[in-house]
Amino acid sequence: MSFVIAEPCVDRMDQSCVAVCPVDCISSEPGADRKFFIDPDQCIQCGSCASVCPNGAIYPLNDVPVDWIDYAWIDAAWFRDRGVAREVLGEVLQDAAAAGVTVG
């Protein structure tokens, strides 16, 4: 189990999480990504990221709100294929916008 960065990070990208992660498992590509991503294979579940995120965007995998469960897949996917992860993120955000959910 790891932590997951969900929708409230999108277009906010505060970066406090990056500063506190002891194993440097939170990444993003400047200019190309709209959020940060947690590598589930590296996360040691210390919870530091979640405790400092000013946007309340980070959840333990088991506690991710159901509307944002896709973000668990997106975070993991980004560390295997960034293009696919970005594509799916775009679709998830479009679906959320279509459903009238505020994004970003």
């Binding site: 189990m1 790891s2 194993v23 589930p40 294979d41 590296q42 996360c43 040691i44 579940q45 405790s51």
Partner: peptide, 16 residues
């Protein structure tokens, strides 16, 4: 600063 104890059976960190 909170000390968390990860759940038993936590995944072993892998560096690929």
């Amino acid at each position: 600063e909170r000390f968390h104890t990860p759940a038993a059976g936590a995944p072993v960190l892998r560096q690929m």
